[in-house]
Design a protein around this nucleic acid. Sequence first.
RNA 1: GCGGGUGUAGCUCAGUGGUAGAGCAUCACGUUGCCAACGUGAUGGUCGUGGGUUCGAGUCCCAUCACCCGCUCCA
Length: 649
Amino acid sequence: MPARSIEQIRNLCKRRGFIFPGSAAYGGLGSFWDYGPLGVEMLGHIKRAWWRNVVYERDDMEGLDGAIITSRKVWQHSGHEATFSDPLVDCKKCRSRFRSDHISLPAPGTALRAELDRRIEGSDLHIQANQLVHKTTVLDAHGVESKEEVLVGPGDTDNWIRDGMISANLLPCPKCGAADWTEIRRFNLMFQSHVGPVATEAGTAEELASRVYLRPETAQTIFMNFKHVQATLRRRVPFGVAQIGKAFRNEITPGNFIFRTREFEQMEIEFFIKPPQYVQAGEKTDEQWHEEWINQRYNWWLGLGVDPSRLRKRAQDKAELAHYAKATTDLEYLFPDFGWGEVEGVANRTDFDLSAHSRDVPQADLARLKLEKNADSTETFDYFDSEAKARYIPWVIEPSAGVTRAMLTFLCEAYHEELVKEPQAAEVDPLKVEIDAAIKNAQKKAKEAEKLRAESRVPSTESAADKGAVDAQHATRDTAPKHDPAAIAEFVARLEEMKSRLPASLLEIDNLLEEHPGALNLEPVKKLKPKVSKLAEDCVRVVLRLHPALAPVKVAIFPLKKNEAGIVDVAHRITRQLAPFMRVQYDDSAGIGRLYRRQDEIGTPFCITVDFQTLEDNTVTLRERDSMQQSRVAIGELKHLLMQRLHMA
RNA sequence: GCGGGUGUAGCUCAGUGGUAGAGCAUCACGUUGCCAACGUGAUGGUCGUGGGUUCGAGUCCCAUCACCCGCUCCA
């Protein structure tokens, strides 16, 4: 069973040196994390596994490592400066926050739309030649107010109508129905800085000239280097470029530990292919390449130990596609606490980006891609195809994965708690009595809740306004509204079944109590929880079943007795022998059982114990993490055997 | 920004207006023949911060800061 909460992972990561909160001595800084000794090992392994898979094991890929700080022009022409932002608006009445472009406009023909149209006519807004015009109050240089007609903008008329109507307080809040909005604020997600000595006033020509952005995605530096890589490595389309590196986004709502952070690391590929019109019979189309990469990437995750029941492919709807994409399929992992979350996106970006950065692009293509002519660029990112005898701007398929998210995924997937010994009957029997008491209480509470419900159903036949009043009354009177009879019944059934299997089911009961917040509101159940946990704690081991390639420490070496000079010497010698080839850890600071448990918790695949027999025949105990099985291995064979079993040879 | 929650030892947390605690972890010494052993001792705190009430504040009041959860988003 994988991790049941992000909290478990966060605690383990902090306790064992994977991940620490950033700037902790000063109270922390939202959403920035420092990777500790084990974290940096694991990140490195994830990146190496990816690089090996997409660069070394293919014959159509090259690598790249571009600069993080990038000219403002790159992001102007990629579309990020204008569109990589969220338009936010708050309802002043109910304080809900919305993305303004997510509030739906009532469909034409409906009564609400007719009403809105009528009110638009009487407002500062009107539609003129299919464009929205807004009368805005402006101040001139002398502070005198006047009304000025402002064209709200080109493009998607619905969008502008909606924004205009929000600004004019005409569109009702989807939640409370009021029409009282704050200003729409565009929140650009890019971090900016300045290169060289800087004029301080924002928006001045000097400031704009020196402004740079920390890249919000690594992709653009690959596009900027398309021709360099193609020419210097003499590549022919189709080929791809892989890059691993940090990216930065000033997210409005980061969270869920390292799932969404403001500084993160990406593993991205831009795979350059023929545009559809040049594809010959028997060659792959953009759609086929897209499909192939989706499957190839999906299998990579499975190969590193992710269970297929917790990894899915999900094609994005038209509405959620990014401005550059023709189609995108997300790979999503089933995380604890927050459910399915994207760990990789495979996008068909067409020729949008390379065209956007090119000086010379045919007018028809600009129109198709909704691009303006690029007057800043000195290059055209095209390619001469000697087979097709044509010069074209390639299309791209972009598989883009998060390193940080991959780490969280692998940690959640690898996390296991196991009952390694059964508690004594003397301790289990009183527990059974308490469980019975808790069940009895839960059933009583369920009955009460049922009764309350029946009562509250009576006034529901009255008018809607009255019903609201009654509900409000109920909310204050009913001190435990979370008691859902059906949920309690299910909880009781599960608890009873598990009780019958005690002591083997001790851990399951612990998990059940943990995951059932509704049931935990019951007093006897609450009291039960720490008792079960305490008993379980003594009998459980936490083990990270990480794929050996990802484990931060590969082998731990222990002397069975630390004040036995002969044993200690051999253990040190083995440590020195293996150290150049793999990350090893020597530990003699506790009893042997505890040393094993420590290594289990950080996912170390193998432990070596040097004992008295070693001094006689030069063999050691090799203990395997998942099975806890031991075998005797000659010291001379250790390196070879380990390299093999760690998939390093 | 808004709502809710939390701030006491490295971690998990007790703490009734009156001498700041426990368990775990860490370190030292001793002990220890394979799955979270034991003994003895030690380190570690301006109780998030600032103000107020009080003879006296971890505890009551006010302010403030930080973090967590949600108001989602896409690596």
